[in-house]
Nucleic acid binder design. Structure first.
Length: 337
DNA sequence: AATGGAGCCAACCGCGGTTGC
DNA sequence: CGCAACCGCGGTTGGCTCCAT
């Protein structure tokens, strides 16, 4: 036989917590702790609530040092970088933000930050309508402006030097942002920051470029095409953007991810941007999660997905025809088509 | 002032992994 | 070993508030 039933579901209250209930729960836990048993706690505390509900209320609202209110730019950066690396693993992300709960971060992402990020693509008149379809548009040879506050916020660039039209490649490589960190950064391994740029390359492709300090740009040697991987070249490289509504991209606009390649770099996916230096992965599980993206139909199937795979079985996973410029192994380019 | 839509967020739901019996 | 409950998580929902019309 198993354990006793957790609670009398017919006799538990649901819905918003009253101040009295909050007080009872808080007082009880402060005096006696949770005892490691949430199911038994409500009865002991004199609450007609399910243990799950008590746990949620405590963790998300009542426990000490909970931080409410605005998220800082630094918190934004952490959330963005971690989301880019591991997706919607909110509890892991929350662990990096003292005082923030996974629920808070999840809500913040869904309601604000996601839209804020997609504000990267605004039209010159600052309207919120979405950019014209890629790649054919009157702006084909002109990069979309990046929202100034967000850019300065995320990239630590000074507003005075802000160029609303980011040419690609551009001298943003010389700045020192740390938007996207590699996985091992927040997991306790070697710190390595990466930069993120939005713009157009010399072929007017819409790109997000990820690179780290010291990455050379396409213009450095005039061989900009060498590191560009077309969708048909990569068996698991086709991304779709999340449908972000106003100001965002429509579904089925594909992201293309160009992984910097070298003898030490392997094919990654799903927003995990691998460094070219030898990687000592601290958490193999997460790596597995990332690498599994291409074998499951999508990475984050829910509405919170930022990118997810469009697994294309017609492709043969053979990257041998990709022309790699070994001098640019630290560039990571994401294409929007 | 009334109303409807959008945004926000606390709370619930359901699932997968873990644990106790 | 298998079943059932616990636990924690991510996704979703519903109600409240704000704001534009």
């Amino acid at each position: 036989m198993g354990r006793a039933p957790c609670c009398d579901k017919a006799n538990v209250k649901k819905g918003p917590w009253s101040p009295e209930e909050d007080s009872k729960l808080k007082d009880y836990i402060e005096k006696f702790g949770t005892g490691g048993n949430w199911i038994a706690l409500p009865q002991k505390a004199g609450l007609k609530r399910c243990g799950k509900s008590c746990r949620l209320r405590w963790l998300n609202y009542l426990r000490p040092n909970i931080k409410h209110g605005e998220f800082s730019d630094e918190e934004d950066r952490i959330i963005c970088s971690m989301f880019a690396s591991i997706g919607s693993r909110w509890s892991i992300i929350a662990a990096q933000l003292p005082g923030r709960t996974d629920n808070d971060i999840k809500n913040y992402w869904n309601t604000k930050l996601k839209k804020k990020l997609m504000g990267l693509v605004n039209l010159p008149n600052n309207s919120q309508r979405k950019p014209p379809p890629f790649p054919s548009s009157s702006h084909q040879n002109q990069p979309y402006p990046i929202s100034q506050p967000l850019l300065s916020s995320l990239y630590n660039t000074s507003v005075s030097s802000f160029d609303p039209y980011v040419s690609f490649p551009s001298n943003y490589y010389s700045s020192n942002p740390s938007l996207f960190h590699t996985q091992e950064n927040f997991l306790g391994g070697n710190y390595s920051s990466m930069q993120c740029y939005y713009g157009k390359d010399q072929n007017s492709n819409n790109v997000l470029m990820f690179g780290n300090e010291g990455s050379c740009t396409s213009s450095d040697n005039g061989s900009s095409n060498n590191n560009h991987i077309k969708q048909e070249d990569m068996g698991c490289s086709a991304f779709q953007s999340y449908n972000l509504g106003n100001g965002g991209f429509e579904e089925n606009e594909n992201f293309m991810l160009n992984y910097g390649s070298s003898s030490t770099s392997t094919t990654g996916c799903c927003g995990y941007f691998e460094e070219t230096s030898p990687l000592d992965y601290v958490v193999e599980d997460v790596k597995q999660l990332i690498s599994n993206c291409g074998t499951s139909n999508n990475y984050n199937n829910g509405s919170n997905s930022f990118f997810f795979f469009n697994n294309n079985n017609n492709n043969n996973n053979n990257n041998s025809n990709i022309n790699i410029d070994e001098n640019k192994t630290q560039e990571k380019v994401m294409y929007f088509y």
